[in-house]
């Protein structure tokens, strides 16, 4: 879980730089129809979610490439439609709640075998491409004249982003996983005075929130996902006082 939180903390810093805070939150909703279909087919819901999210990343990428003003609106409609479809096709109410908010479960051995390497790969790639991502998100034109392929970087980032959502889906659900990406980065944005400290603080806030949320949830028998996000949100309100 710490690895998942670390990946979330790192990936979130770039989501804020890319100004995709709302889209970032919304994109996780596209997991829902995938979870629904997987439950109907009686396969692991995470697989269904992963397929839908990767497809969603390509859709967002293709839409953004067109640079139409209405992209945000289209993304909003696409993802609320996903939410609606997901809630209709997920048959059991309890499953729907788990899909939305996560469940207090532990990773099985297959999930660990796939999840740990995936988290490490995401963290490695984010750190490897951090300079390229940031320059291309700040100014695609400057990035282009610096020899970068902005479009490929965008796609890579979106795939890493949905990869991170897949990792946290089981504990936080489709509604809350986007928050574990955005909230720690927003906390860090209030405090950090340089890019490297931004990455470090966001990572630490995400890991701390996950750890404390986990312990609190276990101790008081409440849902893990909401507990984690409550901790992160609490840190955000504290960080507001440190913001310049």
């Amino acid at each position: 879980m710490s690895l998942v939180a670390a990946a979330s903390g790192l990936i979130g810093v770039f989501a804020l730089t890319r100004r995709m805070t709302l889209a970032a939150d919304a994109i996780s909703h596209i997991a829902l129809p995938g979870i629904g279909i997987a439950l109907l087919l009686k396969i692991d819901p995470v697989i269904g979610a992963a397929v839908m999210l990767v497809a969603g990343a390509f859709v967002v990428w293709a839409l953004e490439k067109k640079t139409k003003i209405s992209t945000e609106a289209v993304i909003g409609i696409l993802f609320t439609a996903s939410l609606a479809i997901g809630s209709i096709i997920i048959p059991v109410e309890e499953d729907l709640l788990d899909a939305l908010f996560g469940e207090a479960a532990i990773f099985n051995s297959l999930e660990l075998a796939l999840g740990i390497p995936l988290a490490i790969i995401i963290i490695f790639l984010v750190l490897k491409y951090k300079d390229k991502f940031t320059l291309s998100f700040i100014s695609p034109d400057i990035a282009r004249t610096s020899g970068l392929s902005v479009s490929k970087l965008d796609l890579l980032y979106l795939l890493l982003f949905v990869g991170t959502i897949v990792l946290g889906l089981k504990f936080l659900g489709a509604l809350l996983m986007g928050s574990l990406i955005i909230v720690p980065a927003a906390v860090s944005r209030n405090i950090a005075r340089s890019f490297s400290s931004d990455l470090l603080i966001s990572l630490l806030v995400a890991v701390f929130s996950a750890f404390v949320g986990f312990v609190v949830a276990a101790h008081y028998g409440i849902a893990t996902g909401p507990a984690i996000i409550m901790v992160a949100a609490g840190l955000f309100f504290v960080s507001v006082f440190f913001s310049e």
Binding site: L16, T17, R19, D131, K132, T134, L135, I138, S139, I142, S146, G147, L148, S188, R189, N190, A192, R193, S194, F195, S196, S197, D198, S243, E244
Partner: peptide, 21 residues
Amino acid sequence: LGIDRNLSVTLRDFLSFKRSI
């Protein structure tokens, strides 16, 4: 530049991005 005012990227970071690329 289309950046938020509270972006953490300093001038050193900004120049270092291209330098390292």
